[in-house]
């Protein structure tokens, strides 16, 4: 099983990165200039066709170091919102700020730099099947230009944190669903993200594994990382007990 989260808490992770002299994400604001709100959305709308709104006048905030759930039935707009936050989609109207960046103002190179400050976890894991577990995780560091030794050290650390250091040389398809999701979480965290976005991360897992994955998110959040998880699993939300932002038909219906 996975080792305890204390083996690599946020302070240690950040310390390792600073010691390596590596960027935690190009363009990240200095701590003094960082806003207290990581996600700041005002009047966001996304229209795909005439009068077909995926999101309509959404306004919401997620504070730094907060763990929030984005919930709602299928078609509520959860995935669209996450895609906008990942800058895979551009809003039709409204303003989206993430860690002080206005996503609408980002050019192509800025988008790349911005994404390096994020972590993402999807229901379908999004692992590269022909690469080993280790290669899947280290890949996110390689593009940051982290020195080789640091890349390997940090990858082992994060794999140890999710309890998969012994499967480092396995390929994704040799792992169970839960293990694959833990690899995806390791990859999401290895680059010290400001914000981790997860879209139905437990959708393919049984309840026990789902709880285990949620515990990883909680531990990640305890280390200081802001986490936004989209799920329609009310029971899981109840069990974890964090703030919930509910969407329905593209609009926020509840934020508690």
């Amino acid at each position: 099983m996975r080792s305890c989260a204390a083996s690599w808490n946020a302070r240690e992770r950040r310390g390792a990165i600073l010691a390596a002299g590596c960027p935690t994400g190009a363009g990240t604001l200095s701590s003094a200039a960082r806003p207290n709100t990581v996600i700041e959305i005002d009047g966001l709308s996304k229209r795909y066709a005439r009068e077909v709104f995926a999101l309509h006048d959404v306004t919401m905030r997620v504070g730094r170091g907060e763990f929030a759930f984005l919930t709602g039935p299928s078609g509520a707009g959860k995935t669209t919102l996450l895609r906008i936050l990942l800058r895979q989609e551009v809003p039709t109207a409204g303003r989206v700020l993430v860690d002080g960046r206005d996503l609408a103002a980002l050019g192509p190179a800025d988008v790349q730099r911005y994404r390096r400050t994020l972590g993402f976890v999807f229901q379908d894991f999004k692992l590269i099947p022909r690469k080993t577990v280790f290669e899947n995780v280290i890949f996110a560091l390689r593009i940051l230009g982290v020195p080789d030794v640091q890349q390997r050290r940090r990858t082992f650390q994060v794999l140890k944190w999710v309890g998969l250091q012994h499967r480092a040389n396995a390929f994704p398809l040799e792992l169970s669903g839960g293990e694959q999701q833990r690899v995806a979480i390791a990859r999401a965290l290895v680059n010290e993200p400001v914000l981790v976005l997860a879209d139905e991360p437990t959708g393919n897992l049984d309840p026990d594994l789902a709880l285990e994955i949620m515990n990883l998110f909680r531990e990640m959040n305890a280390g200081g990382t802001t986490v936004l998880v989209a799920t329609h699993d009310r029971e899981l939300i109840h069990h974890v007990g964090r703030r919930t932002i509910a969407l329905d038909h593209g609009s926020v219906t509840e934020s508690a």
Partner: peptide
Amino acid sequence: RDEIEIMELVGAPLSF
């Protein structure tokens, strides 16, 4: 294409 999407999501430069 899936691999390319993942690379884009982690912010890999176009040249990469």
